[in-house]
Design a protein around this nucleic acid. Sequence first.
DNA 1: TCTTACATACATACGCGAATGTATGTATCA
DNA 2: TGATACATACATTCGCGTATGTATGTAAGA
Lengths: 218, 218
Amino acid sequence: MARKTKSESAQTRERILDAAEVEMEARGVSQTSLERIAKRAAVTRGAIYWHFADKSALLQAMISRTALPLRDLRQCLSQHIPGDEPLRLLREMLLHGLHRLAGDQKHRRVCHIILHRCEITAQGHPAEALLSAMFEESREVLLSLCREIERLGQLRPGLTVDAATDVLMAFMSGNYECTLRHPGLYEVDRDWDAIVDSVLFGLFDTTVIAPRSDLAAG
Amino acid sequence: MARKTKSESAQTRERILDAAEVEMEARGVSQTSLERIAKRAAVTRGAIYWHFADKSALLQAMISRTALPLRDLRQCLSQHIPGDEPLRLLREMLLHGLHRLAGDQKHRRVCHIILHRCEITAQGHPAEALLSAMFEESREVLLSLCREIERLGQLRPGLTVDAATDVLMAFMSGNYECTLRHPGLYEVDRDWDAIVDSVLFGLFDTTVIAPRSDLAAG
DNA sequence: TCTTACATACATACGCGAATGTATGTATCA
DNA sequence: TGATACATACATTCGCGTATGTATGTAAGA
């Protein structure tokens, strides 16, 4: 058992990453030995050290393999025509993230690992930098949208743009947190539309996108 | 250097816990050796093993030492007179949690550890059970309040009691998440009143507790 | 109140397993 | 035939738990 073809080698690499996902989600990153991962992937540690420099690199590759939580917000934003309604775009972005959180199991697993099964501490740690970058990027996207919304006079008086942005950040972060950390205690298959609308209604004048009498009458 | 008096011994125990907090927050639970903790506390590992069975017990003691995030919600709830306005009580409870998160550094440190610096995985792990219990208890408290609010006809139509509860859970969890994980990127000293009011306004008919023309006009 | 006897509060030393990283072997692909 | 894609074997480290040493506090007896 030695040299495989390139595609077989690539398959081995994927199997290792798959195994790492399962084991790390179950046991935590530091408590998962490379031996366990190798066993589940039906290889030896030698194969892991061939494909990855060490456990840290393996983790980084695992993160890179799947698209990340709110990174696609940018992609979503690129479809945003300047003249379009920012409130509606914001609504769609939030819903997109929540539906993915509810539906994409692989996505959920990796997020669960980097959020709750990994003790990120080192400054130069790639996962640390990646998390901060994601957070900052997401916030900037939301912030720019909130700014546009404010410019249209749809921000509720008494609220600052930053406050509205951070409520949205907290709402999304909290849903990731609750959903992933307490899967049995927090419903994930639900009517997200009504929920998102309620949050938006608290922050903005949503009559322009959601002329629902029940909300306006509240 | 041997036998100390009882109070001296208690001081040693506290020093060990203090040291554990600092080290574990900096390096993560699994990456913090008892040797490091001992060094910072100016004792040896022998002292730690005298006061605590093992690292797990030390962690548990560390958690038990500080009052836990939303456990005091019950205490807060006990002051709730049945005839009182549940919406106002809910508001006070949320604000209390947020202000403590902003002001109590020790509280913040321990929460940071158990939320982000600890790979909880084992089913029987006390920290795991504790986290779940806290979550469940907090949710029950909020749920009961939302039920009362609904009974008063103050829940916005289109929303279920569970949905409103989970928005509040996500909002609070998200604030803990953002504040602790991204201390530089997420403002913690802010006008929480306006923010909480906005969230509540999205979920409930808040005219009874916050007859603010700016919100009603939104 | 002095001493004895024991418990306490650690420090020191050691054995152990587990996991890591590396060095080397080996069969196959190209 | 050389580079590849691993498997195997080995050395080393690191942290844990425990066993043991030791000096002091403390209570009881005389």
